[in-house]
């Protein structure tokens, strides 16, 4: 799987200026890629452009060996008239029923399958939504802050499960959490802060690419986190003023 963005420019109608101007980006192979940046830096916009939910004003997004990419975000809701278990059964791709059972168990949702979506907590809603994407056929899954309301230990075990069980798939993970981005990602694309101009280039850093935070040396994680945070503040130089 390969995604190449060339000379990408985009602005929202009625906004002061473009968010991206001549942006280049390349993602290739399976694994966990992250977009890191502060609120309003354009992470979701970039992900939506890659997913085809937004159209760039100019430039190209070339996709190779990508038959199916999916985009998921944290405020998604399930239809309210069905219990979540029934909905999940109905939308599970053929042959993935066993994976559904495992995911429900690993994500701590087995006891909630008889509940309606409205009655779940925010964190449970996030987990149920993620499960239904993971039981689809996909090559690339974009996760736009899909675990925003989940507590940190659960987030770590979920990301750990995904990394162990979907090694042949590609993920673009969008998060504000620098430590999980540092630990789990194969490559981190850092976006600068909001309101500093049109972004022309991203800072690309290698991540630790581990499948659990416990496997990381504390010093290495802190070093990587610092590197990402520094790149985030230094990345102003990649802006076209």
């Amino acid at each position: 799987m390969e995604i190449i963005c060339r000379n990408l420019s985009f602005s929202y109608a009625g906004s002061d200026g473009p968010i991206f101007s001549g942006l280049d980006l390349s993602i290739s192979g399976a694994g966990f890629f992250s977009f890191f940046g502060f609120s309003g830096s354009g992470k979701s916009t970039l992900a939506r452009l890659i997913a085809g939910l937004l159209t760039p004003e100019s430039g190209q997004i070339i996709k190779h060996d990508l038959s199916r990419g999916l985009f998921s975000y944290n405020t998604e809701r399930l239809p309210g008239w069905l219990p979540v278990g029934e909905h999940l059964k109905r939308v599970t791709a053929d042959g993935r029923e066993e994976m559904l059972k495992r995911l429900l168990s690993e994500f701590g949702l087995t006891s909630l399958t008889g509940h309606k979506f409205l009655k779940l907590s925010m964190g449970q809603k996030n987990r149920v939504n993620l499960v239904r994407y993971l039981v689809q056929d996909f090559d690339l899954l974009i996760l736009d802050e899909v675990l925003a309301n989940v507590d940190e230990p659960s987030r770590n075990s979920i990301l750990s499960f995904i990394k162990k069980n979907f090694p042949e798939k590609s993920f673009i993970y969008i998060s504000h959490n620098v430590s999980e981005v540092a630990v789990f990602s194969k490559e981190v694309f850092v976006l600068p802060q909001e309101g500093t101009g049109a972004l022309s280039d991203l800072v690309s850093l290698s991540g630790l690419d581990l499948d659990h935070p416990k496997k990381a040396e504390r010093g290495r994680v802190q070093e990587k986190m610092l590197e990402i945070l520094q790149a985030s503040s230094e990345s102003k130089k990649h802006l076209k003023q």
Binding site: S72, Y73, R77, V91
Partner: peptide
């Protein structure tokens, strides 16, 4: 959008 997105993404 928040409910329909999944069905559109997955072609359902």
């Amino acid at each position: 959008t928040d409910v329909e997105h999944f069905f559109r993404e997955t072609g359902r």
